[in-house]
């Protein structure tokens, strides 16, 4: 019986609790209208992620293979395998990398293997380079040890070789 005769004092503070919130309903309503989406919550993460994790340089690491077309208005570093055309401002093909297709750029540094064509203003073939195909250049460096099977023509810019990286990619929003 004592169960049901307890006094209700305990419930009084619980009822009082929501009241302070009512006092500034005017302010909270204004704040709610201002930020419909939880911006205060999302913004710090946005700023952090866009500032630290949005590099413009691309890296194709050794465990990666791309079949298709690769374009950039910035630099590309390839350590993996690309089966298709590559176009960028500066392309670095690493020692264990393989590219099957045309590599176009302002500057191409080759330490790996290219099976196709290089069209660049400045071409550098290092001692580990293996180039099967033609090189169209304006300025070429070939280190001793590099392998070339193809023509080297200093005709970059003279024939109708398109200038690299003029297409804007990041139109986003």
């Amino acid at each position: 019986m004592t169960m049901f005769t307890r006094n209700d004092k305990d419930t009084a503070p619980a009822q009082a609790a929501p009241q302070p919130a009512k006092a500034d309903t005017h302010q909270t309503a204004a704040a709610m209208a201002e930020t419909k989406r939880p911006q205060a919550y999302a913004q710090p993460l946005n700023a952090a992620s866009s500032a630290t994790h949005a590099p413009s340089v691309s890296v194709i690491s050794k465990a990666l293979k791309i079949t298709g077309q690769l374009e950039s208005t910035e630099d590309i570093q390839i350590e993996g395998e690309v089966d298709g055309d590559v176009r960028a401002v500066s392309v670095v093909v690493g020692a264990n990398a393989k590219v099957k297709g045309t590599v176009r750029g302002e500057q191409v540094q080759l330490s790996g293997q290219v099976d196709g064509k290089i069209e660049a203003k400045k071409v550098m073939l290092t001692r580990t380079a293996r180039m099967s195909g033609d090189v169209v250049h304006q300025d070429i460096t070939i280190e001793s040890g590099a392998y070339i099977d193809g023509h080297c023509r200093p005709e970059y810019g003279k024939t109708e070789v398109k200038a690299p990286g003029l297409k804007t990619v990041s139109s986003g929003a």
Partner: peptide, 16 residues
């Protein structure tokens, strides 16, 4: 880690 930068456009298949 491989990364495709903001200036990069790729069409095709990526395998890693």
């Amino acid at each position: 880690v491989s990364q495709l930068g903001t200036a990069c456009l790729v069409r095709g298949v990526l395998d890693t």
